[in-house]
Simulated assay, not measured.
Amino acid sequence: MKIIIVDDEPLARARLEALLGECEDAAVIASVSDGEAALATCMQAQPDLLLLDINMPGMDGTALAQRLARLPRPPQVVFCTAYEQFAPRAFELGVVDYLLKPVRLERLREALQRARLRIDAAPGAAPALTARSRDEERRIPLAEVIFLVADEKYVTVHHDHGEALIEDSLRQLEQAWPEHLLRVHRNCLVASARLLGIRTLDDGRSVVRLAGTEQTPEVSRRSLPAVRRHVRGDT
Rank of each mutant, 00 (worst) to 15 (best):
R114W: 01
D25W: 08
C188P: 06
D234H: 06
C42D: 09
M56K: 14
R104K: 12
T62Q: 10
P217L: 03
D203G: 02
L16V: 08
Q172P: 06
A27C: 13
V155P: 03
D97G: 06
R183L: 04
A211V: 00
L11P: 07
R132G: 04
D48T: 15
D234P: 03
D135T: 07
V145E: 05
M1Y: 07
N187S: 15
H180A: 15
V145P: 05
R109S: 07
T235R: 12
Q175S: 11
L11T: 14
L189R: 07
A126M: 05
A111E: 01
S169D: 05
P102Q: 06
A111L: 09
R205I: 00
A115L: 01
G233D: 00
D25T: 04
E106N: 02
A193Q: 13
T213S: 10
L117E: 02
D48M: 09
V77S: 09
P217T: 05
V145C: 01
G204Q: 02
D60Q: 08
P141D: 00
D25H: 14
D120I: 00
T62H: 11
A128E: 02
V184T: 13
T200H: 00
E174W: 03
V227R: 06
D8S: 13
A125W: 03
D168N: 15
L11N: 14
L181W: 04
R229M: 10
E22S: 13
M59H: 09
I166S: 07
G212Q: 02
L50K: 03
L165I: 08
P123Y: 09
I54R: 06
G94Y: 02
L99D: 04
L148V: 06
L20K: 11
